[in-house]
Amino acid sequence: MKRKSDWSAYVFILPGFCFFCFAIMIPLVMGINIAFTDWNGITDTYTYIGLKNFTDALQDQRIRQPILNTLYFALLGTAGNTMVSLGLALLVNQKLGKIASAAKMIFFIPVCFSAVLTAFLWKFIYRDVFGQLFHIKNLLGNAALVILAIVIMGLWNSCGINMLVYLSGLKNIPGDLYEAARIDGAGAFKSFRYITLPLLMPSFTVCVTISMTSWLKEFATTMCSTGGGPYGSSRTVSLYIYENLYDYSKAGYGQAVSMLFVIFLVVLGNLVSAFFRAREVEA
């Protein structure tokens, strides 16, 4: 009996795993060797140069700004996303009737815009609309504010999803817990801190991990809206990798940088998700 159910466990994961290997693992392994070569992306042949690309990457001065930018993106983006999505979820969760359902719809519509489209739309808005409305200069042309401007775009585009996840988590919290707390005299703040937050941990795991790693990988929106400018103040690591792979004809180097980047992200992602998973309270 036990053997049969053991088998089933493996059978369940098999189809997903097959697709996964096909689309990700196999290409990844196929591409790894390039990082150890001097391939420029065009020639037929290349020579193996051992770890040179990696040592170059660690000493590369041009990579410092992208790293700083990326970290800044991740910080602003994750904090912003968590606060805004949670805020929206709490707001919509109130019993405000039909308006709440309309609100949910409206907060989710921006998610239907693709990253590229969002970038074009907001480029237009920052350039023309804000200029007319608020008479301010284009935020995307301001080196100090450009990352903030792009984060705002991204939040508009993605908070709808996380709002749904938090909403789903909020609905899963049994109402009697709040009742009990109210009877005990706890105010809104206290019940939020001691009931809502802990029971919302599974949602945090999902949202924070995904949000953080996705901002660290930031590429499409930035590429479309500023291309990394002005003078590199919004160039992210992904953008730098892309430039090396295809623009500067340094495919080997680009691949090496991305491998280091992936390792860093994997370590960070696992740490963060483990942090939250440990704090999850099972219902």
């Binding site: 920052y126 350039r127 200029g131 200069k137 284009n138 935020l139 995307l140 042309g141 301001n142 002005p230």
Partner: peptide, 11 residues
């Protein structure tokens, strides 16, 4: 003009 760095080619 007053915002050359915020103006792009299209504009």
């Amino acid at each position: 003009g007053d915002d050359p760095w915020g103006t792009d080619w299209d504009t």
